[in-house]
Design a protein around this nucleic acid. Structure first.
Lengths: 201, 201
DNA sequence: TGTAAGTGGTGACCAATGTCACTGTTTTGT
DNA sequence: ACAAAACAGTGACATTGGTCACCACTTACA
């Protein structure tokens, strides 16, 4: 049986018997913009990134960590609306795919699942609000530094292996801007760059 | 008994017997940043605005319309966290104040209330995402025009009575910027200004 | 090993918008 | 009606970030 902390045994059984366990390699798109959703992914291992996008510009909204779910999928599926965001695996992941119709039923039967979903909505609301505050109140240097700090905290790796281009796309800006700001951070001794790795000091 | 569309009679009775009905004049702060919340407001009549703020700069996040609630209050109260946003009445309002502990109980007993809360979370997630997209992808002229369109739609008044300063604060920018952009919109025949009123064409 | 693709560095320039200073007009309150 | 307060208009300038052009370096792989 699949272990799910904080959920009742009865629910864990239901989920185990009705969901698909899948392994997805890193950097794979698991939810497309505009897609109609029929399963709710629950992350068991790994890390998933959720983005908004318009034309060539995109922005990382938040990460989905183990034991969290993509509540937007639930939302979109409930109202039978296409997804407004898209999601990519950041690492190799193990996901549990819960069928939407079952979830709707479980919500009514299992208060602990109901609570989990409320918590998830709550968490995402906070994530989006934080994103808004950064866009509105912070300059690029602070946004970049916060981004790097979060990345280090989540992946538990310090010299990060990531390209300027990649960072730019997650922060919704251009590569040159990241290069420019990164140089400034390096001069301020906040980061150190070695070939394609970035160390947070 | 207080009429609440889409809620069961039994729940309407519970709510009527356990909540306070209050009337609040326009432009009154009903939820402060950092405040701990003990009631969930449900808007019966009027319009409430929700903002985020940092130092002198603030931004309108979304409106709460009749038969909607401030789900963030619920969230904050559940986790006993201070509110990250603040709310102001935009018009004279009738609000129903639901005690948090009762709501937590009703959520388990009345599936229709549970559904309402899911819908509200969903709605606010969409509102915040829309706000992010505007901040990230749109220039001031489009943001201002969208703001005016929404205001006209919500208040059902066309020549709007509102100052540039007010608009600036709701869009998180400066008065001069609004004056400048408004002039441009006027030249493009998208709005018409007469003393302190703005008409959307 | 050599070529292509990806990556980063950099200067010049542009566009959007935030800021300042100052003016004149409109509205409000008494 | 008058003074005070709020509001709007505007030119000049600063800052931030986006764009372009182009060069050099590294990596992948055929």
């Amino acid at each position: 049986m699949i272990k799910l902390p904080n959920l009742s045994i009865a629910l864990q059984e239901q989920i185990t018997n009705n969901s698909a366990l899948v392994e997805i390699p890193a950097d794979t798109e698991i939810l497309r913009e505009g897609q109609y959703v029929k399963v709710i992914p629950l992350v068991l291992e790994g890390l998933v990134k959720v983005f908004t996008k318009y034309e060539d510009k995109e922005l990382l909204l938040y990460y989905i960590q183990p034991n969290e779910s993509c509540i937007m999928s639930f939302t979109a599926s409930l109202k039978n609306e296409p997804s407004k965001v898209y999601a990519i695996t950041d690492e190799n992941c193990k996901l549990l795919l819960l069928p939407v119709d079952k979830v709707a039923q479980w919500i009514g039967e299992f208060p602990d699942l109901n609570n989990l979903f409320f918590q998830q909505y709550n968490l995402r609301y906070s994530d989006l609000l934080e994103t808004i505050n950064q866009l509105l109140f912070d300059k690029m240097d602070k946004r970049l530094l916060d981004y790097l700090k979060e990345k280090v905290a989540l992946t538990k790796k310090n010299p990060l292996k990531i390209s300027h281009r990649q960072i730019a796309s997650e922060l919704g800006t251009a590569r040159e801007v990241i290069s420019r700001v990164m140089k400034k951070l390096e001069q301020e001794a906040k980061v150190k760059q070695l070939s394609t790795t970035i160390e947070l000091l």
